[in-house]
Amino acid sequence: MTLEKPYFCRRKFLSCHNVQQRFFIMRLSHSIFLGSSLAYILILLKTVSSAFADILEAQVRLGNQLGRIFLSLSFFVFLAILWEITARGLKIPTPILPPISGVLHYLIHFLPTMLSDVFITLYRALLGLGLGTILGLFLGFVLGYSSYFYKSFYPLLIAFYSIPKQALVPLIVLWTTFGTTPAIVTALITSFFPILVNTTTGILILDPDLVALAKIYGATKWRLFVKISIPYSMPYFFAALRVAGVGAIVGATLSEMIAAQNGVGHKVLMASVKFQTLELFSYVLLIGIVSVFLYWLLTVCDRYIVWWAYRGQERL
Rank of each mutant, 00 (worst) to 15 (best):
I85H: 03
L213S: 13
A125C: 03
L139C: 06
Q59H: 06
Y283M: 05
H105A: 14
A51I: 08
V243S: 07
F160L: 15
A53M: 08
Y217V: 06
F192W: 10
I184R: 05
L44S: 14
V246C: 08
A259G: 15
L127C: 08
F193M: 02
V118A: 14
T181P: 00
F178T: 02
M234V: 07
R315L: 12
S282A: 15
S291Y: 07
F70M: 10
A159V: 10
A80T: 13
V273W: 11
T201F: 07
T299A: 13
A212H: 11
N18L: 15
T94Y: 10
M114D: 04
A248C: 05
F78C: 12
Y310M: 00
F119L: 15
K12D: 10
I81G: 06
L157I: 13
S15I: 06
F33R: 07
V197K: 01
L44W: 09
I172K: 02
F160W: 06
P208T: 09
T190H: 00
G140Y: 03
V250Y: 03
K274C: 01
G140F: 00
A167S: 14
N198H: 00
F33Q: 10
G35E: 06
P93S: 09
P93C: 03
W307A: 14
S29K: 08
L294K: 00
I25S: 12
I158C: 06
L3E: 14
G247I: 04
I172A: 05
L14A: 12
I134S: 11
L71K: 10
L294D: 04
S36I: 09
G312R: 03
G263C: 04
Q20W: 11
Y283V: 04
S36M: 08
H17Y: 13
W222G: 04
R223W: 00
I32C: 11
L56F: 15
F281Y: 15
T190W: 03
T176V: 06
L122R: 02
Y283D: 05
A240L: 05
